[in-house]
Amino acid sequence: MAKTKQPLTHTQVNQAKPADKPYKLTDGGGMYLYVSVAGTKSWRIDYPAPLTKKRVTITLGKFPEITLAHARQLRGDIKYTLAMGQDPRKVKKDDERQQLLESNNTFAMIAEEYISRQTHLSSATHKNNRRYATYLNKVLGDMPMNQIKPIDVLDACRAVESRGYLETALKMKSLAGQVFRYAVQTAKAERDVTQDLKGALKEPPTKHYPAIIDPFRFGQMLRSIDDYNGSFEVKCALKLMPMLFVRSGEMRYAKWSDFNLEKNTWIFTPRKTKRKMGTSLIVPLPKQAVEILSKLAEHKRGEFVFPAIHTTVQPMSENTMNQALKRLGITGDTHTIHGFRASARTMISEQLKYDDKFIELQLGHRVPDMHGRAYNRAQFLDERKKMMQEWADYLDELKS
């Protein structure tokens, strides 16, 4: 069959029938419609390779998926690429590789990969992170990492913020930042776009945990704890919390390997602030705490000082101690486990008259000196040892 010398028309393309042999219908500029014996029609273009000048062929796609007008547009793109001194085959392969990379590099996929690798986190934190990721995925899930802009993350967070969940929105932004930093470290993104969102979300009102700070009422609570008739391990945890006033998670995750009962010390790195301060927190143990821990050591069950009731490979759950307080008639609107920190901060300052910087350091907070530099957590250890023993003695006085 003779080749068509004039540019093709849609009718010619549409009515082209298969023949005994494959044939071409030329449109010009090296492009033609290739008709197979089976009747398949595909657009192709021949051109000289930029370096070798050898004639090569690229298939643009099949008709009717690729129309005549679309094929001519693709031909124009190839002509432009050649004019720029580039090989269209290489450009096409690069585009296909980029599309494949982006299809396997969505926010949802990278977030799942990141969360799955955080094996050191508690099950509760894992559960929360997956919940935050679910909310983020509603907007970002199918988007390639390198196409996500700050406004996209902000839209995902504000969808939750607008419903009044201010803290959840902030947690979502924080998780998105972690995912982006992981993507940067694994060469799947160029930067953390959440850095442009500082101050963009509303801050939730400061949450104050209910805490008893009246000495008489505090003494009554301590006597109630002494009368607790539940689990021995839970009772020991309840007795240590007001004495050592660490965070509840730090008490629950306490490991025997971090304690030296001969030197009366407990040394660990607070998970909440380790990125900001880096150094470990030293908790001087008053003699009362050593006595409790020594008795508890006789019933040791695994690496955790306070393991879960039904397993030794997980620590006590986060609700166990608060539930124990409720059993004693101490409700959440009166006092919480976290409230022991506020009680100690207030009463050590007001009743024992200790310098606030000693108390704040013992709480694991960042305390700047007169030059704005943070004190090391190991500083003022002698003063803090004295303070912790005097505080434990004071608690005994309140009970009596």
Rank of each mutant, 00 (worst) to 15 (best):
Y228S: 03
S116Q: 13
Y34V: 00
F358K: 03
D333L: 08
S36Q: 05
S224D: 14
N137L: 04
H335K: 12
E233Q: 14
K239D: 07
S122I: 05
K287E: 14
L281G: 06
E262C: 12
T194Y: 02
Q15C: 12
R345F: 11
L296E: 07
L136R: 05
T9K: 09
G177Q: 10
Q86D: 11
T320P: 06
V35R: 05
A38L: 03
D355F: 02
M370W: 10
P270N: 03
G249E: 01
Q147D: 11
A289G: 04
G199K: 05
L325T: 04
R271N: 08
Y114I: 09
D227V: 12
F306D: 05
K3N: 14
K198F: 04
S116W: 06
V246F: 01
F232M: 14
E390S: 15
T26W: 10
P88R: 01
Q351T: 08
A83H: 10
A156S: 07
S317R: 06
K138G: 12
A187L: 14
S162V: 10
E318D: 11
Q12W: 07
S317E: 03
N105K: 00
F180I: 01
I78R: 00
D382K: 04
L33T: 00
I267E: 14
M387T: 13
T312A: 14
H120A: 09
T40F: 08
K41G: 01
T67F: 10
A83F: 02
Q362M: 11
H126S: 08
L361Q: 01
G339Q: 11
L166M: 12
T311C: 00
K79N: 13
G329I: 06
E65Y: 12
V91D: 10
D226N: 06
T119W: 00
R377K: 09
T311Q: 00
Q185N: 13
G30N: 03
G164W: 10
K385P: 08
G230F: 06
Q389K: 12
A187Y: 15
A111W: 07
L121N: 10
S280W: 08
R217D: 13
K149A: 11
F304K: 02
R89A: 11
E350P: 00
N105A: 01
Y132S: 07
K24W: 09
V246G: 02
M143W: 12
P150L: 05
R97M: 05
K17V: 13
T134G: 06
D77C: 07
A169P: 09
R117A: 13
P315H: 15
F304Q: 02
T186I: 05
P22F: 11
